[in-house]
Simulated scan of single mutants.
Amino acid sequence: MKCTWQAGRDAPGDTQYFLYWQNSRDNDAMECELYIKDENGRNTGCRFQNVMIKTEKSYFLVNGSSKDSPIQFYEEYILLYEIEKLMPPSNITVNCDEMKNNCRIQWQRPQISHSNKDKCFKYEINIKYKGDPEGKNKYTFIQEGGNSRMFQRSNTRRKYLLKMRSAGSACFVSSAWGEWSATVEFGNEEIISSSVWILLVIAVATLLVTIITILFCQRAACWKAAFSQIPEPKSSFCGLPDTNPELMERKIQSVTSENEEIILVADVEK
């Protein structure tokens, strides 16, 4: 717990302040053990450790002293639970079912000395997409009591960011919203690995070089220089004299030998 005050407008320069407090009627008044000082060494605040907040009012007294003039004291009765600033929920976890769109959010209530019931708290849950340039909250929930909630993802291929804070809903707990929790990241995000990016770049570069080479060779006619044409063979029948069919005589001779008949056909040039 931390208490602060300001020096009086007309307080002499040597004025010093001292804080006394009584947590309840059953306790004795105690002086501050850890003062907060300004640049002149004057007490302007106090830090209390291991404070037990109760449901009855606590008594505070700030007394001042000076060699030059008397200093007016200040006293007040305060319900500490009404001014308590709650810590955020702890142990926040999110477990998602990869086969479905449901995620289960779980947490533990703030630890305070004067209440140990979940029903005494309410929670604000803010969820947004990771990397959202607008930075706006996609979902906002207010939940009374409990320590878990189901969340249905609208996009299973995105990562989400979640944060929570708490306030009193009933009992003797401050109704003011406390501090936000640390951001919790959950969900899946399809990210192409660096090795895949490198392979894609190499493939695209190779394709571009091939296309440029083909276009250049078509314009420069380098294919003919690289691959010479094979000459076509000349016809072996070119230049032979024409044969006069009238000068040809067909002679057919039949030879019979056992069971086989052989017919010989020959062209004889006269």
Rank of each mutant, 00 (worst) to 15 (best):
V204Y: 15
D97W: 08
K128M: 09
I127S: 02
Q6D: 11
L61S: 02
S236P: 13
I53E: 00
N43W: 05
N43H: 14
S236F: 15
A11I: 02
A221H: 15
Y35I: 00
D38P: 00
G8W: 02
C32M: 05
E39A: 04
R104M: 13
S113T: 15
V196K: 12
C32A: 07
E82K: 02
K119C: 06
I230K: 10
R153Y: 13
W180K: 15
K119I: 07
Q229Y: 13
A7T: 01
K67H: 13
C120W: 07
K159H: 11
F227G: 03
G187S: 09
N40R: 11
M164W: 02
D132S: 15
T4W: 05
I214W: 13
G187A: 10
F186C: 07
Q229F: 11
V201Q: 12
F227K: 10
E185L: 13
W197K: 09
D14F: 12
V51C: 09
L247A: 12
Q218C: 08
Y160V: 04
P245E: 11
S65D: 08
K57L: 03
N188D: 06
A225F: 06
S195H: 10
P70S: 15
Q6T: 05
M52Q: 10
Y20L: 07
S175V: 09
G178W: 01
Y139D: 02
E179K: 13
A221N: 15
K100Y: 13
F121G: 00
F227Y: 14
S236D: 15
V255M: 11
N50R: 10
W197V: 06
L19W: 01
Y139M: 00
K117N: 05
S181Q: 06
